[in-house]
């Protein structure tokens, strides 16, 4: 399946999709642009008439990552994943997060983003986010964010969201990987959600609204296949906590999780 996107096809079919596919008139100039110099003609008997050099095409790849596919205590479950398609600079990204607790879907969102490399370790990402709300109206947000690797090897993903109704939100995520051995990896992560306004319907409050922290220990049978177990902690703060208390819900929750991390 991967072969369809890699070099060998780029050879046989013109790489129509290749971004940054530069102007061949420069690098693969027709042979008659050689100055007529002694010896030149003799070297050109078999000179190429078509620029099909194997290295002359950008490789386009697809990566699908399932960061978390897990079962949680109390009939809960979660999926967090992403998929990208593209080359070195430009990519199309999809991100999804689904959370279920006590048999009900609490969160279900999908982001579609254009991603552009802007520095050695960071991509600027912009696009849309759709929240599938089971009980209220679904909502759309505009997204702009930074995704990449921060100093000290923190994987970070930050995004600013602006809703159709003018609502605003900010999400900051960071993850670290501590290798206990080459196979056992302990991965702490933290997510903070901020909102520009209170929203009783979604239970979110102005300012810092909720915190999610996780600690997962995985075993990499291969770098691409790693089951894990861990603990997940969620806490609502500020106004969001008040909304929860008003509804008679708890403001924090700690659950054991077991799941699988994989990519291909």
């Amino acid at each position: 399946m991967k072969k369809t996107i890699i070099l060998c096809t780029a050879l046989t079919a013109p790489a129509v999709l290749a971004q940054g596919h530069h102007d061949h008139t420069q690098t693969a100039a027709p042979v008659n642009t050689y100055p007529a110099t002694r010896g030149a003609g003799q070297n050109l008997e078999h000179a190429p008439d078509a620029p099909d050099h194997v290295m002359d095409h950008e490789v386009l790849l697809t990566k699908v990552t399932i960061d978390q596919l897990e079962a949680r205590e109390d009939d809960g479950a979660a999926l967090e994943g992403s998929a990208w398609f593209g080359g070195d600079r430009d990519k199309l990204w999809f991100k999804t997060e689904v959370e279920r607790a006590e048999g009900e879907t609490e969160k279900k969102e999908l982001q579609a983003l254009y991603s552009r490399a802007i520095s050695p370790y960071f991509d600027l990402q912009a696009g849309v986010r759709h929240d599938f709300e089971p009980e209220s109206d679904s909502r759309n947000w505009a997204v702009v964010g930074l995704n990449g690797l921060a100093p000290y090897f923190f994987e970070v993903d930050s995004a600013l969201f602006v809703g159709e109704d003018g609502d605003s939100a900010l999400r900051l995520e960071a993850e670290y990987e501590l290798l206990l051995t080459q196979q056992w990896v302990l991965s702490p992560e933290l997510e903070l959600n901020f909102f520009g306004q209170n929203n009783r319907e979604t239970g979110t409050g102005s300012g810092l609204s909720d915190i999610e922290a996780g600690l997962r220990l995985r075993y990499e049978f291969t770098p691409q296949f790693a089951p894990y177990f861990g603990i997940n902690y969620e806490k609502k703060v500020g106004n969001a906590a008040d909304f929860a208390r008003d509804d008679g819900e708890s403001t924090s929750e700690t659950t054991w999780v077991v799941g699988l991390r994989t990519w291909f």
Binding site: Q42, N43, H46, A47, H53, V54, D56
Partner: peptide, 15 residues
């Protein structure tokens, strides 16, 4: 050797 005998597709010959 002469460049058209060098065997690099796209530079010396068509492959």
């Amino acid at each position: 050797l002469p460049s058209d005998m060098d065997g690099v597709p796209g530079l010396s010959f068509n492959g």
